[in-house]
């Protein structure tokens, strides 16, 4: 009887756990009071240890990478040359843009891309397991963050807020599988669109919507504004274009501009649901 009761209890607990997994998959809109408070309690301790870890990492990195500095210098010199050329082109574009902005103001055109405020915060803990790349940040509902807010850092797109507590939030990075991002090319002409997904190995694989799209290695890609992410955030650089005649859509492999192994500070753009404006501005 005792054994039968044990087996029954095991099956019951197992079923409850499976139900809990199904219900919580995809991130909950609201987490419980206990979870939120526990997170707020642990946050200062985690922040302290993370800062020690970052300090040690910062101090030991130059020693570990001392042999790579020659290559790094050469690459930076080449990049510097290319950037100088870009500055000249961009200055010309900037002048044109200033004229157009002036014209827009003169015509009283309604600005639909008003920039939203950022919330700056620290990464306080990272995933313990080796399957996903989730981490927590020290800002939550009290700082104005909501579910599906966009997380960026100085380099580009980092990820999306998955669950939110009072003073902390859980973030899922774009390099996680099943984390889809709508992208477009960072070009003046030939504006190809597509969708990217993570691979867990700190790289992204994307599919271009246009089967005849011509892209090349070294092109940069940005968010297209389709889906959760705002338009125009830098995602990464194409390092391989997979042309397979059996595939209808061309595939690209992308190196993210963000170094996911070393993220310590991020900025969060709160999620605002897009309203479909049927009439449009005149």
């Amino acid at each position: 009887m005792d054994n039968r009761l044990k087996k029954f209890a095991l099956i019951l607990i197992g079923s409850l756990l499976i139900l809990m997994m199904i219900l919580s998959f995809g991130g909950r809109d609201r987490i419980t009071f206990i979870e939120s408070k526990l997170g707020s309690l642990l946050m200062p301790v985690q922040r302290f240890f993370t800062s020690i870890g970052n300090f040690v990492d910062e101090k030991t990195e130059p020693i570990i990478n001392v042999l790579n500095y020659k290559d790094l210098n050469e690459n930076l010199a080449l990049e510097n040359e290319a950037l100088k050329e870009q500055i000249v082109n961009l200055t010309m574009s900037q002048k044109e843009l200033a004229e157009l902005t002036e014209l827009k103001r003169a015509l009283k055109y309604v600005d639909s891309d008003a920039q939203i405020g950022y919330v700056s915060c620290n990464v306080i803990s990272k995933d313990v397991g080796n399957w996903f790349n989730m981490f927590t940040i020290d800002a939550g509902v009290n700082q104005g963050i909501n579910k599906n807010s966009t997380v960026i850092n100085g380099n580009g797109l980092v990820g999306l807020v998955y669950e939110v507590g009072d003073n902390w939030s859980k973030v899922i990075s774009i390099v996680d599988q099943k984390s889809s991002v709508g992208f477009e090319m960072l070009r003046v002409t030939d504006d190809y669109d597509g969708v990217l997904s993570g691979t867990t190995n700190y790289e992204l694989i994307g599919e271009l919507f246009d089967p005849k799209a011509s892209v090349k290695v070294g092109d940069y890609i940005v968010t297209s504004g389709l889906g959760m992410y705002p338009k125009g955030i830098l995602i990464g650089k194409i390092y391989e274009v997979v042309v397979d005649k059996d595939l209808i859509l061309n595939k690209i492999k992308v190196t993210p501009v963000v170094d996911f192994r070393k993220i310590d500070k991020v900025m969060v753009i709160p999620y605002v649901e897009k309203e479909v404006d049927q009439e449009g501005g005149e």
Binding site: I18, I22, L38, G39, V128, Y162
Partner: peptide
């Protein structure tokens, strides 16, 4: 682990 860094509750538990 499930609460703070998991994709869903109960897996690691």
């Amino acid at each position: 682990q499930d609460i703070f860094l998991g994709r869903m509750l109960g897996v690691n538990f």
